[in-house]
């Protein structure tokens, strides 16, 4: 009885366990597996990441005004869907130039809302690819 009272009393003056999250940011470790980032100039367009991705969240689709890069012979543009990505880092391991052309940052993905049309645009792209 005595013990539990003293414990309860101590707990009254302890720092709260809760992190007041939206007000105070939680610092992420630098190795946290967040969004996949891509650099257009460094890419050699080997399409290994596209093949390696288990859910198919990376797509190279031919466009009219492709990014200017001498390796890009087919006129492709990189697309990435953070809502389809499973953050497994397999694309980075498959990439011949990891940390230059493709790397995994520790940034959190953004929250999508209905007006973003996160799905429709992506499935249009997939239809073009086929």
């Amino acid at each position: 009885m005595k013990e539990s009272f003293s414990k309860a009393f101590q707990n009254l003056f302890k720092k709260p366990q809760t992190i007041d999250y939206p007000v105070t940011e939680i610092k992420k470790d630098k190795d946290y597996r967040g969004l996949i980032e891509y650099c257009e100039e460094e890419c050699i367009y080997c399409l290994k990441c596209e093949k390696a991705c288990p859910p198919g969240a990376i797509l190279f689709v031919g466009v009219e005004n492709p990014p200017k890069n001498e390796k890009n012979k087919k006129g492709l543009k990189y697309h990435y869907n953070p809502y389809l990505c499973i953050y497994c880092q397999e694309c980075v391991r498959a990439c011949p130039k990891p940390n230059e052309a493709l790397w995994q940052s520790n940034k959190k993905p953004t929250i999508g809302v209905a007006s973003d049309r996160v799905n429709d645009e992506w499935f249009e792209l997939e239809a073009i690819k086929k």
């Binding site: 939206p22 939680i26 953050y87 497994c88 809302v113 973003d116």
Partner: peptide
């Protein structure tokens, strides 16, 4: 969203609690 209209999309596999809190706040 094929079946019911979705208002907020929270990405991540698995979504971390921070993202879920962000989503609920939205």
């Amino acid at each position: 969203d094929r079946y019911i209209p979705v208002d907020v999309y929270v990405a991540g596999c698995a979504s971390s609690p921070e993202l879920i809190i962000d989503g609920v706040v939205k």
